[in-house]
């Protein structure tokens, strides 16, 4: 499957969220998701580019892609365990 064809099971629109912030929203969505599901999170917070990959790696999930969209960044994560 090509990256552009990935269909997330859930999109979390965390644009404009500084507190609790996009990573907290992602953690919440991943907790609620089933193993194998894909969650995509939209962020306008500059810290996300460092935070999100760090957490995804530590928590043992998979970062399928990071995309620059118009005015925000999209992170696509697969729940692995």
């Amino acid at each position: 499957m090509r990256l552009s064809e990935i269909k997330p099971n859930k999109i979390v629109d965390a644009r404009g969220s500084f507190c609790p912030g996009p990573l907290m929203e992602l953690i919440k969505a991943i907790k609620e998701a089933e193993v194998g599901e894909i969650v995509s999170v939209y962020s306008t917070d500059s810290g996300s580019k460092r935070d999100i990959p760090l957490w995804v790696q530590k928590a043992g999930h998979e970062l399928l892609g990071v995309f620059e969209r118009e005015g925000f960044t999209e992170f696509v994560v697969k729940k692995k365990r």
Binding site: F18, C19, G21, M24, G47, D51
Partner: peptide, 10 residues
């Protein structure tokens, strides 16, 4: 704390 720092706002 769940994040890589002690509070969401850097």
């Amino acid at each position: 704390y769940p994040l890589p720092r002690v509070f969401p706002i850097e």
